[in-house]
Design a protein around this nucleic acid. Structure first.
Lengths: 208, 208
DNA sequence: TAGATTGTTAATCGATTAACAATC
DNA sequence: TAGATTGTTAATCGATTAACAATC
């Protein structure tokens, strides 16, 4: 209580992993779990899990551990995914299309609510319940729907200017699929999805 | 020299980011760069970049910094991406298809060389130069092509058993797109791509 | 040369782990 | 009760940063 110190970002980054594991346990009808069991599944020490959770409150009971559903709901609240966030996708290539079709966002707090592409040939195309809009409507549509999150799925050469435009429209969180580091003003968050970077991380350890 | 101590994994994980930035600089025809400039672009301290690189050798010159192309080639060698790694993709849904079509792997050391799906309706389908194969051919085909890396793009419920099968076939590096932590034997590496987890990491900081 | 920048050492900072009293 | 497991403290471990001699 009276927790003034900011919680380390690295801890926040682990919460979605805990949430993912808890979701799995709910599907398996597990009622209780322990820091030891969770750690076992995730390859994390039980001490770390208890320490991480202790930043936010006391969620367990000595002797019995954590009620799976309760902890799940608490983490959803902490991460603010006990609601539905609207997202924009910019760049409707193969990847943007896959993102737009992906069924997995809904259960985790997200919904794709707008699609944009610079290519006139793609504008007007219907994908699910959405129509691809031109870049010229980006600011207007994002403002209208009060969209706060966007996914960038354009070529690397376009990513920075698209990011600038999204920030101008009021977007505060960017998930960038383009293989390039982008610069944003303070207060805007960026996360990166770069499969090739992950692959290169692993090849270091592979013997030729 | 005589560097016996293992290099921290967190350092290895940053090398692909440096490589990405250097690649960009090559495109921009920049001949030299400095730890300061690189750090500026990436939001990393110059000291960290110098420290990271110092694990592998001396790549710069006092006063002038680093030759962009030289450092790029050195990092490619260190990460072993100065060659072409063959990859298998398991699960040919929207995402698997996007991966199979993605043009960006080639330049970074990778090529998709085999596609698998459990759905008989998808088996036999041609995607680019490849034909989707049934799971029953997985071990044989991966062995035949000596594939060491695989990408898992199946539903979460299937991911663990697919991983087991890939490991059985001799795959040593897995990039898992399914939102679930998988368990693999020692010596096999796993990296995760979970966009929803990244999004949840960011919503923590968003004000409602 | 003077200015710039490296590679490296030592100091600092922060994250992880071990241990255990509290208690279900 | 006895056994199990939490939440927390202190100790350990590792990563980042600051500083600077070396030198291009």
């Amino acid at each position: 209580m009276g927790n003034k110190a900011a919680i380390p970002d690295i801890v926040i980054g682990r919460l979605p992993i805990y949430l993912r594991a808890l979701n799995r346990m709910i599907q398996e009808n597990r009622e209780y779990t322990s820091s030891h069991e969770l750690g076992e599944r995730l390859g994390i020490s039980s001490a770390q899990i208890r320490k991480d959770l202790s930043h936010f409150g006391e969620f367990g009971k000595q002797g019995t551990g954590y009620n799976v559903r309760y902890l799940y709901e608490q983490l959803r609240q902490i991460l603010k995914v006990d609601r539905e966030w609207l997202m924009a996708v910019v760049g409707i290539g193969d990847l943007g299309r896959a993102i737009a079709h992906y069924r997995g966002f809904q259960a985790r707090g997200f919904r794709v609510a707008a699609l944009f592409d610079a290519d006139p040939a793609k504008v007007g195309e219907r994908i699910g319940e959405l129509t691809v809009l031109p870049m010229s409507q980006l600011v207007e549509e994002i403002t209208r729907q009060n969209i706060r999150i966007a996914m960038i799925a354009v070529p690397a050469s376009e990513a920075q200017s698209v990011a600038d435009k999204l920030v101008e429209a009021g977007v505060q969180a960017l998930l960038n699929y383009a293989p390039i580091t982008i610069t944003v003003p303070p207060g805007v968050r960026v996360q990166y999805i770069d499969p090739a970077a992950h692959l290169q991380h692993m090849t270091y350890y592979l013997t030729p």
